[in-house]
Amino acid sequence: MPSKSGHELVPVHELVSDKETKELLKTMNLDITNLPRIFSTDPQAVKLGARPGQVIRILRRFENATLPYYRVVVED
């Protein structure tokens, strides 16, 4: 199956809007600093043009399910 991202190992990355981020953190009862990180210099973050402080949603494929994972963009 051809992947949208260009390589098998790279799942689809997408930017999460600020409003959605707020809701997300509320439902997960998390502070934004608790999220796993991704550097702003990361090839995928550069591709999206993400700025530090934004959240990237990663659609991980595991077996037959697609599960969202979130990373906050931080400065390198």
Binding site: S3, H7, E8, V10, P11, I38, F39, P43, Q44, R60
Partner: peptide, 25 residues
């Protein structure tokens, strides 16, 4: 095939494709 070609060098993957690909690798 650019999509499937891979290596056992995790850091090479990290530099080329980023942290998520490195995690998968």
């Amino acid at each position: 095939d650019k999509e499937r070609t891979t290596t056992n060098d995790v850091f090479a993957i990290y530099r080329l494709f980023g942290i998520e690909a490195a995690r998968n690798a």
